[in-house]
């Protein structure tokens, strides 16, 4: 039973990450390959606050969200200056940069050794000991993430995001300050990822750089894309499905050294398949992008 809750927790955490990615990618056309790094920023922030300054999750989580949002600012700057595929590569660069900081800044992060024994204190003297309580937290986080995504995807705000996604020049011609929108959406995305990281650090009581690498980012992107990057619940389903696969592989008795690369290969194939078979609107209309970006523009 505890094991089942563990799956729910991991699925819930990754679902929030997938939702955060789909918010910026599916709605605004900004695909970031750095969610794992921002996730890590949140995790390390909470871990350091909890271990060094004795701040419980109730304080650590908002701090993690704030710092993760700040950590997303360079992504927003890149988004304001770069077109689609250049932006994706810039986020890749940022991801590996942050990951290398986690590895190398040994004084703070203890490098590959990681930070251990993170207290599972939520508030005052309330300590969590069972997985079921964490599972509730994880579910609440997922639902809240979807809720935020829903609010920002619909209505007037969402309409502007869709303009930015499909053809930036329309948004500009309508007088929308697209830089502001890009900043806001990426910072919200970052805050959600930071919250997920916070929960992750408190649950696993141990953070090390291996959980925040480019591989994890690609996993999150695949979850969102496979589940349906423009939908609200799709990324959640994608996360649930793609968290289950390695667990099922484990049960089938396949040794870990085979299971790990095997499930990665499955992710890779799933990604290729989806990209090749999905109608063009994965990250915005190709026609709109061609019009918006191939003209000689200011």
């Amino acid at each position: 039973m505890e094991y089942l809750f563990h799956i729910v927790i991991i699925a819930g955490i990754y679902a929030s990450l997938a939702v955060s990615l789909s918010l910026s990618a599916g709605q605004a056309g900004l695909l970031s390959l750095a969610p794992a790094a921002i996730f890590g920023v949140g995790a390390y922030t909470t871990a350091l606050l909890a271990s060094n300054v004795d701040i419980p999750l109730a304080g650590g989580l908002p701090c993690a969200m704030a710092i993760a949002a700040v950590a997303s600012i360079p992504l927003a700057v890149a988004a304001s200056r770069l077109r689609g595929d250049h932006f994706i590569m810039a986020t890749l660069g940022y991801q590996v940069f942050l990951a290398s900081v986690f590895e190398n800044w040994v004084d703070v992060t203890k490098g590959p050794l990681g930070l251990a024994s993170i207290p599972r204190r939520i508030f005052d003297s309330w300590y969590i000991s069972s997985n079921s309580e964490f599972a509730c937290l994880a579910l609440v986080l997922s639902v809240l993430s979807v809720f935020v995504a829903m609010r920002l995807s619909n209505g007037a705000f969402g309409r502007v995001l869709h303009c930015i996604r499909d053809d930036e020049s329309i948004a500009l011609a309508l007088g929308k300050d697209i830089r502001r929108f890009k900043f806001q959406i990426l910072m919200v995305s970052g805050a959600i990822a930071g919250a997920a990281g916070s929960l992750y650090a408190t649950y696993t009581t141990f953070v090390d750089p291996s959980a925040f690498t480019i591989n994890e980012s690609i996993v999150v992107a695949t979850m969102a894309i496979v589940g349906g990057i423009r939908t609200l619940w799709g990324p959640v389903l994608g996360a649930a499905a793609l968290v289950l696969i390695p667990e099922l592989l484990r049960f089938s008795g396949i040794p870990h050294t085979v299971a790990a690369p095997l499930h990665q290969a499955i992710f890779g194939v799933a990604l290729i398949w989806i990209v090749m078979n999905l109608p063009q609107g994965l990250l915005g209309s190709a026609k709109g992008k061609a019009l918006s970006q191939n003209r000689k523009t200011k």
Binding site: L31, L33, G84, D85, I88, M89, N215, I218, A221, I225, V258, A260, P261, L262, Q264, A265, F267, G268, V269, A270, L271, I272, W273, V275, M276, Q280, L282, L283, G284, A286, K287, K289, A290
Partner: peptide
Amino acid sequence: LRRRGASPEIQLLASFGLLVTLQSLISL
């Protein structure tokens, strides 16, 4: 993908898929 008029981002994503697949098969 080119024939379908896919944008550079889509081709980049497909390339990532290929990268992950190939790398993990080699690892396997």
